[in-house]
């Protein structure tokens, strides 16, 4: 048990437990917060895998922006406690079974094909620094980059339009 492995296991445990907690929590705000914990854990893993920029982006964008947006909406809509009767009774057991099957099969496939011999590398200083990522982004991936900016524009406009239209109807009625 090397220290790296130990650290990894701890962080992984945190991530999984936070995810499970997010699922099971009845309070929506708690779910959001558990998800933030999950994101932070994953950011830590990114760091250990030698992706500092991505890790920070994760914290800033995901945990910082997206989850905050979620929390705003949760506050706006009221974190109601919904009645938990299932209209489709067999959905729950089937979903659980299938997810377990998914995990089992995926793990089996991974271990049989990849095996434990393939090891990840320790993080280096120069491999994934922002300069290198920026070079890649603006040279090879410049088109997706520009398109992504358009996507963001569209999303912003769309969000405004959607909520505005609703408002107009409300004003009419």
């Amino acid at each position: 048990m090397t220290p790296q492995l130990f650290v990894f296991l701890v962080i992984a445990a945190i991530a999984v437990i936070a995810a499970v907690a997010m699922l099971l929590s009845r309070n929506t705000v708690y779910s959001a917060l558990y998800l933030i914990v999950n994101f932070l854990a994953i950011a830590a893993i990114y760091l250990s895998l030698g992706a500092p920029f991505v890790a920070l982006a994760q914290v800033t964008v995901y945990a910082g922006a997206i989850m905050v947006l979620f929390l705003f909406v949760i506050m706006m809509l009221g974190a109601e406690k919904l009645k938990e009767q299932e209209p489709l009774k067999w959905q729950r057991p089937l979903a659980i079974f299938l997810s377990l099957a998914l995990v089992g099969e995926a793990v089996y496939a991974l271990t049989s094909h990849i095996g434990q011999d393939f090891l990840t590398q320790p993080p280096t200083d120069t491999l994934a620094d922002p300069k290198a990522i920026g070079a890649l982004l603006f040279n090879q991936y410049s088109l997706p980059f520009e398109i992504t900016s358009i996507i963001l524009l569209v999303a912003a406009v769309g969000a405004v339009v959607l909520t505005r239209a609703g408002k107009k109807e409300e004003e009419k009625s």
Partner: peptide, 9 residues
């Protein structure tokens, strides 16, 4: 999900 699991299987 059912489809996904089936393909994976």
């Amino acid at each position: 999900l059912i489809g996904l699991v089936a393909i994976l299987t």
